[in-house]
Design a protein around this nucleic acid. Sequence first.
RNA 1: GGCGCUGUGGCCGAGUGGCUAGGCAGAGCUCUGCAAAAGCUCGUACAGCGGUUCGAAUCCGCUCGGCGCCUCCA
Length: 503
Amino acid sequence: MSLYKQYPLSVQNNLTKQKEQFEPLSEGKVGMYVCGPTVYSDVHLGNVRTFSSFDIVYRYLTYLGYKVRYVRNITDVGHLVGDADEGEDKIAKKARLDQLEPMEVVQKYTNGFHDVMQLFNLLPPSIEPTATGHIIEQIEFIQKIISNGYAYEVDGSVYFDVKKYNEDQPYGELSGRNVEDMMSNTRELTGQDQKKNQLDFALWKKAQSGHLMKWSSPWGEGFPGWHLECSAMSTKYLGLDFDIHGGGMDLKFPHHEAEIAQNKGCSGHGGAKYWIHGNMLTVNGRKMAKSEGNGFTPEELLTGNHKLLDRGYSAMTVRFFMLMSHYASTLDFSNEALQAAEKGYKRLMASVNLIEKLPAAGSGNVDQTKSAEFKGIIEKVLTDLSDDFNTAKAIASLFEVSSRINSFYQNPSDLAVIDKAIFDETIKHFRGVISDVLGLRNEVVGGQDAEVLGGVMDVLIELRKQAKFSKNYALSDKIRDDLKEVGVQIKDEKGGEMSYSID
RNA sequence: GGCGCUGUGGCCGAGUGGCUAGGCAGAGCUCUGCAAAAGCUCGUACAGCGGUUCGAAUCCGCUCGGCGCCUCCA
């Protein structure tokens, strides 16, 4: 039996505002689209949180046995800087400032984005389409919307007719808005003379003279509107109807609302069945954002070279920190919280590393009750993950397994009564969840350096053993204390063995 | 102004009406030559005020905070 039948998944669907049983449109297969980054600057930690949230979704679906097609786009054109329609293209502006080709800007930050994803151990999507690579699809999409009567052309630009659309189907169902309210409340913007209505949004914009990123279209030279690429590319790669659409909470309106309207205006199909939104990372209670000046890059995080950071934190520490809260809750960044996460993460991983040192399970009189109880912990982990990807709850249970492992190591007799098959199954999932679902990995020195270090440590440990054996505590303590000074902790174990960990 | 979220012990954070996660910090104990690690035990928190209920952190109302979106934003 596949795991997804054993641990049926439920998800909070923001389209229906309810937690629902997850049922893919096609048995055993999942199509998921997630809004990716706009590549005109470095990603900051807040961006990382959203992508991490959906990395968990992707990983867990896969772990449950679903075959997942995960599409995450790269927005490399089209978003304007100003709040009116005449603003400059962000990428073009960056290109002008840095004296680069727009596509050089795009490439630079796309590379940077990939590096960051790798650093935090996020899996690459199945397809990573770019907006500039799908201009034709977007033009075709617009043409269909126009022919359906939901868009109009004005002087080389095309706008989506929200009011007309709203006569046939509700606009605002995802974000809980209604058109009448918005028409009376939306503030006046300048430079929107072309639009019939303030709520209308651009599907295609005529390129002003000097605009760098532009393409030919039936309406003249221009570029696609802000929301169109996701509609066009999700349809192309996942179909008119697919399972999951994800993105940051801040994209809910207007971006995702526009996406739904575009989809329905084009084909009558709304796209995704389940809409999932990741919440924001905050700093002192405020959203981390470039405009707030409270964002920092992953590099600053690692080095601690930022005024908000007391010191540097590793990528896995940060990943673990993010997983300790639920993706739909805001998460507040602080040095204290990071330090707590760091210790917790190390404790968890230490127990994972201890598993291989354990003696065999089930070597004594097997106690079925205790065995079942042990198994129950990992079942709870999977049940919690199936409850809307609740990593926070799951981690609590993982720590329980962790404690058991530590106890088994100290008291092998407790392990002797645990059924071997049950133990192996539990440990398989314990390791699987930590590495495959949560994406946590050991942060150790790699390569040749690691071998050398290991060899050096073996020598020092042997020296300390001899010193202890001859009751030369002054020397044995000096070895331990001096190593502690340079960040290596020696631990004496039962039976005279010693182990070490690197801080 | 509209839509929505939120207020949990020293800190961070889960919480499906009753059995009241977990991590970090703190206290005690065990183990230990001394440590460290680990294990065990402890703190009995849910912004305030009402209400529903046998029973509410959890549901309802009001009050007071905080935040997000409504303009590009993960």
